[in-house]
Design a protein around this nucleic acid. Structure first.
Length: 804
RNA sequence: GCGGGAGUGCUGGAAUAGGCAGACAGGCAGGCUUGAGGUGCCUGUGUCCAACCAUAGACGUGUGGGUUCAAGUCCCAUCUCCCGCACCA
């Protein structure tokens, strides 16, 4: 009987389609397990092997948990709003709704071909009005709670997408999606107050089982720092408030720097002796792109404001004030006190402009370089702070500043509020009306969902207006508040809106009265294990944690955090380790692999390919190795004996393999789990195998190669015997004592060098091992006539004889 | 620049509370099977030296030191690569 993967896979996929063995319901009697993978953006090119890696891994985890008796929720859906679909629709004159439907069908078909154990009854789609009704509903709650607001401010504008971007979407000065340059544009935008949650988004990471690089990346992005705000008077009788993390160095502040955009510069302009020079510098700074402003090792530039001086509050000295673009308008107060002796950037600036450098922390040589060590330095030249450590001085100076009303302790963040509007068609309409009398008015919840107008043309505009703006039928409406003529908000939500809460919808996907029922939320929350890409760490993952915390605050969800555990997979590269891309023509389509080798081989290979967290290169040759393995498993059904026991020869290895596979799956070490099963199969070819052994092997293999296993399960009569598919049976267990062999091979070292091995009963003591060595001619040669003066015995592993 | 991770055969990768390096695959070579083969099975495969056979021996986890009976694993130094942050005061 040949392993006909094509027929077998077709047969079982049909059975799963019809009998829905993986559909889930709340069951308080069983412990739940919610396994989540990032739902795909259904692009036109179809599923990529890159999807198959995390999806298969979590399918293996979900299947194993199910067999261990958990009530497993493992759902799938589509994150279908977004630019590529819209662009494709514009280019080909097809409505994005139709493009989306077609793409979703392709994705669904491909996902089914891979045999994933999703609960298909819970499939969701962010573009479905029944879904985005609740996305809009959440927006209204944010608005009502003061967390959504409209503000005019300079924003990131992608020149190619013709759309604003959130800070998180700008990578190295270019659009993270299309790579086009991003410019600054003054626009009125909807913003979400994520900064209000900055502290909690950092602090609550503590209790979570997230891989470290995710935690540190989020912490870096939020960028919390502790310091103080200090007020400096000026000779023109204004106050400049600066933010500093080093208030202890206040005595060393020898000049000040404002960002070129700082409001006081305009105020003083008329009274400055060098106003022309200052204006020129401002113009120059404004013309620079983000790229240029953050360029590496850039020379410090700046202009002194002549005619005004700052006054150091701690010693009354007057010091010069500069403007320079190394001070950012958007961080802190947009102004700094410069302490060249103890800050690298200030030091460079001071050297260039020949400004005094006053040492206030001893321990370095401030003529050579800024001394920034906060651990060992001791305060000097600092009046009442002299002799203190940096930490002590910070505390004392902040107390002094507060007492004298000159400043206070302050925490600052790099995180900015989330720019939430997009000037594109294919997104959720923002459910807001602008009324000339009442101002900004939210739609009533009963009016949701607010649908997109069905229109012919929705191309983005160059002037930065939404394509919805000219659609007067849709835009013109009445005010929900006073009934007078009003206009709808025409911007749409960013792609990240729908994905910020989708995991909640899976818990109760067809609910018309709430985003999910209280009961479903109580039973399934939180997500137990969420795997996804590192590229989403400071986007989707951060956004959804923010939304979840907000929903928690208003009593909608029962947990503070959405995800208990977060892991991340490495990228799949093309043959030879080069990135897969259409232009290189090295893209692997999973459907092609399935046609040639079968879904089970595809699944097994993508798990065997290497360390899950690291990038891995595709190799068609190596795929064949996994096909061979499955062929060999298939052929065991004709070789096995009828016994349902483990044979003496295989028993220990059986128990070891169960233990290894069980433990490795939980740690995502799928490659070694598979290699353990390969080793077992190799041994079965040497020792023969029993039907009982094969039954266990099939259960262990079923998360990886479900189709093949179900067919063999049926062929061998286990389906009849248990009345259940293999994947619904219990996960095998091992007995720890039986994982130990009766006898072990121990390494024999003489003077630390391996000279041979001896076979001894397990747990042999020194005498027994020495007896075995003395019985071995070859080993005896090394010790005869010599004196053994030290013996190191590592039980069951090794013996080292120190001889002379 | 700062922070984190990683360097192991021809290739992907195993093995770290210090204890037989190279599991498991791929590739290659040889043999058997087959009408045929991206078939199946067997054997070999880190380097050097020696060799008719049989058998030894030395070296070996980026590089250089160190600790230890024993180091891929620990310590110090150094090189390379990858990732994150990057004028955030």
């Amino acid at each position: 009987m040949k392993y006909d993967f094509f027929e077998i896979e077709k047969k079982w996929q049909k059975i799963w389609e019809e009998t829905k063995p993986y559909a889930t319901r709340e069951d308080p009697a069983k412990e739940k397990f919610f396994a989540l993978i990032e739902f795909p953006y259904p692009s036109g090119v179809g599923l990529h092997v890159g999807h198959a890696r995390p999806y298969t891994a979590m399918d293996v985890v979900a299947r194993k948990k199910r067999m261990m008796g958990y009530n497993v929720l493992f759902p799938m859906g589509y994150d279908a709003f977004g630019l590529p679909t819209e662009n494709y629709a514009i280019k080909n004159h097809i409505h994005p709704k139709i493009v989306t439907a077609n793409n979703v069908n392709t994705f669904r078909k491909q996902l089914k071909e891979l045999g994933y154990s999703f609960d298909w009854d819970r499939e969701i789609n962010t573009t479905d009005p029944a879904y985005f009704k609740w996305t809009q509903w959440i927006f209204l709650q944010l608005y009502k709670n003061g967390l959504a607001y409209k503000a005019k401010m300079p924003v990131n504008w992608c020149t190619s997408c013709k759309c604003v971007l959130a800070n998180e979407e700008v990578v190295d000065g270019v659009c993270e999606r299309c790579g086009s340059p991003v410019i600054r544009k003054e626009k009125s935008q909807w913003m979400l107050r994520i900064t209000k949650y900055a502290d909690r988004l950092i602090d609550d990471l503590d209790g979570l089982d997230f891989i470290d690089r995710v935690k540190t990346q989020q912490i870096n992005w939020i960028g919390r720092s502790h310091g103080a705000e200090v007020n400096f008077r000026t000779t023109l009788d204004d106050t400049i408030t600066v933010y500093t993390t080093r208030p202890d160095t206040l005595f060393g502040a020898t000049y000040m720097v404002l960002s070129p955009e700082h409001a006081l510069v305009e105020k003083w302009m008329d009274r400055l002796e060098n106003a022309d020079e200052v204006k020129a510098y401002q113009a120059q700074a404004a013309a620079k792109s983000d790229m240029e402003r953050t360029e590496l090792n850039k020379d410090k530039t700046g202009v002194e404001l002549k005619g005004v001086r700052g006054i150091n509050p701690v010693n009354g000295k007057d010091i010069p004030i500069f403007i320079s673009d190394y001070v950012l308008a958007t961080y802190g107060t947009g102004a700094i006190m410069a302490v060249p002796a103890h800050d690298t950037r200030d030091w460079e600036f001071a050297k260039k402009f020949d400004l005094p450098i006053i040492e206030v922390i001893s321990g370095g040589n401030v003529e050579e370089a800024a001394f920034t060590d906060v651990e060992t330095g001791i305060l000097c030249n600092s009046g009442f702070l002299n002799g203190l450590s940096v930490a002590e001085a910070k505390e004392k100076i902040i107390a002094w500043l507060s007492e004298n009303k000159l400043g206070e302790a302050k925490v600052n963040f790099k995180l900015r509020d989330w720019v939430f509007s997009r000037q594109r068609y294919w997104g959720e309409p923002i459910p807001i009306v602008h009324c000339p009398k009442c101002g900004t008015v939210p739609l009533d919840e009963s009016q949701l969902p607010l649908l997109l107008p069905d229109v012919e043309s929705y191309e983005p505009t160059d002037d930065g207006e939404s394509p919805l703006a000219p659609i007067t039928d849709w835009v013109n409406t009445t005010c929900p508040c006073c009934g007078s003529d009003a206009k709808r908000e025409t911007d749409t939500m960013p792609q990240w809106a729908g994905s910020s809460w989708y995991y909640l919808r899976y818990m109760d996907p067809h609910n018309d009265n709430a985003l999910a029922s209280k009961e479903a939320l109580a039973y399934w929350s939180p997500v137990d294990w969420y795997n996804g890409g590192m590229e989403h760490t400071t986007l989707h993952l951060l956004y959804s944690r923010f939304w979840h915390k907000f929903l928690y605050d208003i009593g909608v969800v029962p947990t503070k955090e959405p995800y208990k555990k977060r892991t991340s997979h490495g990228m799949i590269l093309g043959e030879g380790g080069i990135k897969m891309s259409k232009s290189r023509g090295n893209v692997i389509n999973p459907s092609d692999v399935i046609r040639e080798f079968g879904a089970d081989t595809m699944r097994t290979y993508i798990m065997f390919i290497g360390d899950f967290e690291k990038p891995a290169a595709w190799s068609t040759n190596a795929v064949k190795g996994c096909k061979r393995f499955l062929d060999r498993v298939w052929n065991l059904q004709e070789m096995c004996s009828d016994s349902m026991e483990y044979s003496a020869k295989n028993e220990t290895l059986m128990h070891k393999t169960i233990r290894k596979v069980t433990q490795d799956i939980d740690e995502l070490k799928m490659n070694t789990a598979i290699s353990a099963m390969m080793t077992l199969v190799n041994e079965m070819y040497v020792n023969g195998c029993t039907k009982g052994e094969l039954k266990t092997l099939l259960l262990l293999l079923s998360p990886f190669a479900p189709h093949l296993v179900e067919q063999m399960w049926e062929n061998l009569g286990f389906a009849l015997e248990t009345g259940k598919m293999a994947s619904l049976n219990e996960w095998p267990t091992w007995i720890e004592e039986k994982t130990v062999d009766a006898s072990v091979e121990m390494a024999v070292q003489i003077l630390g060098k391996l000279r041979g091995t001896v076979k001894v009963p397990v747990d042999s003591e020194q005498d027994a091992v020495m007896a075995a060595i003395n019985a071995d001619e070859k080993l005896v040669k090394y010790i005869e006539g010599k004196q053994i003066f030290k013996v190191i015995l590592v039980r069951n592993k090794l013996i080292n004889l120190i001889v002379k």
